[in-house]
């Protein structure tokens, strides 16, 4: 009897919760349709955290000095969340001198291409051979792009964000992204009906905008 009582209590609470949701005209995530928001990963401005040792540019490329004095360059997490599946297709070649603001990575988002700009000035010494045409999963870890011998890094790094400033910057970027999506998205439901009421943004929402929108995204968000 006790076993039946415990089982019925557990199932009763689940059933009541289902009725409560129904009375609120909401659906349990298990019963949402395939294209519902519950199927789609979302992100908020609160999720962005970066390693303490990195320096981030306004163009969402980061720089980190390694123990041999080389500067590792990569793409930040904000871009991953905004664009969804992204892969670097080209990088500046080994031995090339790159100025701050020059294109250092070319990346593909679906059939569109985006240019990412170097946060520092220097010579490309090494390209991560595992990065080309591979979906970026670990932006601050294994999925870095190139190693550079930077010039005047101690001066240039003062113009980059670090520590808490990165969080503040990415929070502001999140707000800008909402405005941008509102202007450009072809599928407003992916941005979420409650987006301007403090709601979340769907991961990869930018990839669903027009080709012209992608160009504007590059201009608005990827300029150093």
């Amino acid at each position: 009897m006790v076993a039946i009582f415990v089982l019925i209590t557990f199932l009763l609470f689940i059933a009541i919760d289902w009725l409560v949701l129904k009375s609120q005209k909401k659906k349990h995530p298990a019963f949402e349709n395939g294209t519902s928001i519950a199927d789609i990963a979302v992100f908020t401005k609160e999720i962005f955290r970066a390693p303490l040792e990195i320096f981030l540019s306004k163009g969402h490329t980061w720089a980190q000095k390694n123990e041999y004095g080389l500067i590792k360059i990569g793409i930040d997490e904000f871009i991953l969340k905004a664009l969804g599946k992204i892969a670097i297709t080209k990088t500046a070649e080994t031995g090339h001198v790159v100025k701050k603001g020059d294109v250092i990575f070319e990346a593909s988002v679906g059939n569109k291409t985006l240019n990412f700009r170097s946060p520092v000035q220097g010579t490309v010494k090494f390209i991560n051979p595992l990065i080309l045409n591979k979906k970026i999963n670990d932006p601050y870890g294994d999925d870095w792009g190139v190693l550079m011998a930077a010039e005047n890094f101690s001066e240039i790094k003062n113009s980059l964000f670090t520590g808490n400033d990165i969080r503040k910057f990415l929070k502001e970027e999140f707000s800008r992204l909402k405005d941008f999506l509102h202007k450009h998205t072809l599928r407003p439901e992916l941005a979420g009906a409650t987006m301007f009421d403090g709601g979340n943004v769907v991961e990869g929402a930018v990839s669903s905008i027009t080709a012209q929108g992608i160009d504007e995204f590059e201009k608005d968000f990827l300029t150093v």
Binding site: R49, P51, N66, Y68, F126, L130, Y140, D142
Partner: peptide, 21 residues
């Protein structure tokens, strides 16, 4: 949120890059 990596071990690729430097 996923675990924050404070320190990444020096990867093989970085080790290879040392003689280059």
């Amino acid at each position: 949120s996923e675990e924050l990596e404070l320190e990444k071990p020096v990867s093989v690729i970085e080790s290879i890059s040392k003689p280059l430097t």
